[in-house]
């Protein structure tokens, strides 16, 4: 394949990557922004979403499209429930202390991983794509499902944006983010906002997983990469800034896709990590974060 088409293919792969990354990173960023909790188990919510999607599509006697759509609803709802339970049973009792919640979510990471290993097993298993069509470009054919993933991720992100900026729930979350005590003096039930935000973040990771799992297979260790990349994205974009997170997801996703194809995935991670180091040195608040 000559350079031009190869670059196009790399850009396409990078765009898919960026779209899914944006979903996981936005969840992480939202949770940090509103609750000041660094959720180390965020990647495991993603893994859990993928594994649940496998169970749903495997055991429901539906045709692939219906089964996948069922997974798209069931997996995020179940993950949101696990997240909300984590908030009420663990994070709330730690009073959202930043250091304590990091330790607790590290513990949760291993618990979810081991639970998946026990119940689901060590194998990577594919989920049948909801539909099969290839788009035939002059130089190569490309998966129509992958393009669908990009469109779907953009739609979900627009919905998140709309919820945060245009709805009462979003207003309440933003007010709580700014000043939890004052929010309380205006009748806002901060405990409920926190449980809801943590559940929302988990659900976003699960949606990303259900979208990706027909491409990448479900595996009990699959949470590592998205966690690392989401942290990279959130730090570059500025902790708690949704706009920054989106821009950084596009930068990191695209460059990761392109560098992986032209050189190697390892080099892509090295460069991304280097970028984080540079951002931390020269602009610690992130590209879009407010100065502390």
């Amino acid at each position: 394949m000559s350079f031009g088409p190869f670059l196009l293919l790399a850009v396409l792969e990078g765009t898919v990557m960026a779209a899914v990354l944006a979903l996981t990173a936005v969840g992480l960023s939202l949770v940090f922004g509103v609750m000041r909790v660094v959720n180390v188990a965020h990647g495991e919510f993603y893994m859990l979403g993928a594994v649940l999607a496998w169970f749903v599509t495997y055991y429901l006697p539906f045709p692939p499209l219906l089964a996948w759509m069922a997974a798209l609803i069931i997996a995020p709802v179940l993950v949101a429930a696990v997240a909300a339970l984590t908030d009420v049973l663990v994070l709330k009792r730690l009073k959202y202390n930043p250091e304590a919640t990091i330790m607790a979510t590290i513990g949760l990471l291993y618990m979810l991983q081991q639970a998946a290993l026990t119940v689901y097993g060590p194998d990577a298993r594919p989920v049948v794509a909801p539909f099969e069509w290839r788009i035939q470009l002059p130089w190569f054919g490309y998966s129509g499902y992958k393009l669908f993933v990009v469109v779907a991720a953009i739609l979900v992100l627009m919905a998140v944006w709309w919820v945060m900026t245009r709805t009462k729930a979003g207003l309440i979350m933003r007010a709580t983010q700014v000043d939890r005590d004052t929010a309380q003096t205006f009748g806002i039930n901060v405990n409920r906002v926190y449980a809801g935000t943590f559940a929302f973040g988990g659900a976003l990771a699960a949606v990303a997983a259900v979208l990706i799992v027909p491409i990448q297979q479900a595996h009990y260790l699959m949470g590592h990469d998205p966690l690392l990349l989401s942290f990279i994205v959130v730090i570059i974009g500025g902790l708690g800034s949704i706009r920054g997170t989106l821009v950084a997801a596009v930068i990191i996703g695209l460059s990761d896709g392109i560098i992986s194809m032209f050189f190697s995935p390892t080099l892509a991670k090295i460069i991304a990590t280097l970028l984080v180091a540079l951002v931390l040195v020269f602009r610690p608040q992130g590209l879009f974060g407010a100065k502390a």
Partner: peptide, 17 residues
């Protein structure tokens, strides 16, 4: 709520009751 607009601050005030 500093980063929120005047209208949004007012909106928060209206919620409780």
């Amino acid at each position: 709520f500093g980063p929120l607009t005047v209208a949004e601050n007012i909106e928060i005030g209206l919620l409780a009751r």
